[in-house]
């Protein structure tokens, strides 16, 4: 998307962290959001990954600084570093795996206890393509089958996946012991790939409402609802926490601030142009 229309809009950075059990699809959601791509056999994240993506709202541009954390238990000590000062969190579970919702509830509780008081939390049930009631859980080409919003992945998105291979996380051969149960479970689903859902929408939504969380069921595989989650978060960030946001456009090198000197306290250390190389958010 051309940025020219956005040039005059105020731009703010939003630090967002993804939390959730191993293999629920955190990295896949980010990959879908940032690159509009999906990988059937995504490697488990080691430590954490950092990506950025812009999101253009009617009145402003939000630049998400996304911290995708590793779900494996051995990385648990890392989380506080990532949710510290985060303005938004995506807590992800896998709708085919009830234990992952339990883990998600733990994360929500920890965030409510430890993170910034105003943090916007979205509860996200991923892998909705594996449920029959989502209309795209069948074995045929499942991409682009839903959504219909202009920014969603078009026909160029991956079309090779079927529900069976999507269920094979390909992470069992690594060291994620937690994932092995799930693999077995989903492989046994082979015949009945129509519905692998084990967490009802109602249960998760009720919980999300109780805790005042945003709630979405998504599929990183098909792209369903992925952009919507990020847009909803962008809209939910209170204006006040966007104050002091980073100046729009590229930095002006060593001369200080990019065009917002009067109202900003930020000092630019270098040319930030490379950081904004990835444009074209669909939302």
């Amino acid at each position: 998307m051309s940025d020219s229309a956005n040039a005059s809009k105020p731009s703010s950075s939003v630090k967002l962290v993804l939390l959730g059990e191993a293999a629920v699809g955190k990295s896949s959601l980010v990959l879908r959001f940032v690159n509009n791509d999906f990988q059937e056999n995504k490697e488990p994240t080691i430590g954490a990954a950092f990506l950025t993506q812009k999101c253009s709202l009617p009145t402003r541009t939000i630049k998400f600084e996304i911290w995708d954390t590793a779900g494996q238990e051995r990385f648990a000590s890392l989380a506080p570093m990532y949710y510290r000062n985060a303005q938004a969190a995506l807590v992800v579970y896998d709708i085919t795996k009830p234990s992952s919702l339990t883990k998600a509830k733990h994360w929500v509780a920890e965030l409510q206890r430890q993170a910034s008081p105003g943090i916007v939390i979205a509860l996200v049930g991923n892998k909705s393509d594996l449920a029959s009631d989502n209309g795209n859980g069948n074995e045929s080409n499942s991409s682009g089958g839903s959504g219909g919003n202009p920014g969603e992945p078009g026909p160029d998105a991956e079309t090779t996946g079927d529900a069976i291979s999507a269920g094979q996380d390909g992470e069992g051969n690594n060291d994620a012991i937690e994932g092995s149960g799930e693999n077995a479970e989903e492989e046994s689903d082979e015949a009945a790939a129509r519905d692998a859902r084990k967490v009802s929408t109602r249960e998760a939504r009720t919980y999300a409402e109780e805790e005042s969380l945003l709630f979405f069921e998504t599929s990183a595989k098909t792209g369903t609802n992925v952009t919507e989650v990020f847009t909803a978060i962008a809209n939910a960030i209170p204006e006040s926490s966007l104050k002091g946001g980073r100046g729009a456009g590229a930095g002006t090198g060593q001369t200080g601030l990019g065009g917002r000197a009067a109202e900003d306290s930020r000092v630019n250390l270098g040319d930030r142009a490379t950081a904004t190389a990835k444009e074209g958010c669909a939302c």
């Binding site: 080691i46 990385f75 890392l78 570093m81 510290r84 060593q254 000092v267």
Partner: peptide
Amino acid sequence: FGAGFGSLLAKWGGGSEISQVGCRALAVGG
């Protein structure tokens, strides 16, 4: 880095923030 000042501070607690940036980088690196 601009007229009228010669020193900086890092937002959100200075050294603590720089420390965590270092640790996050190593975590990303495995």
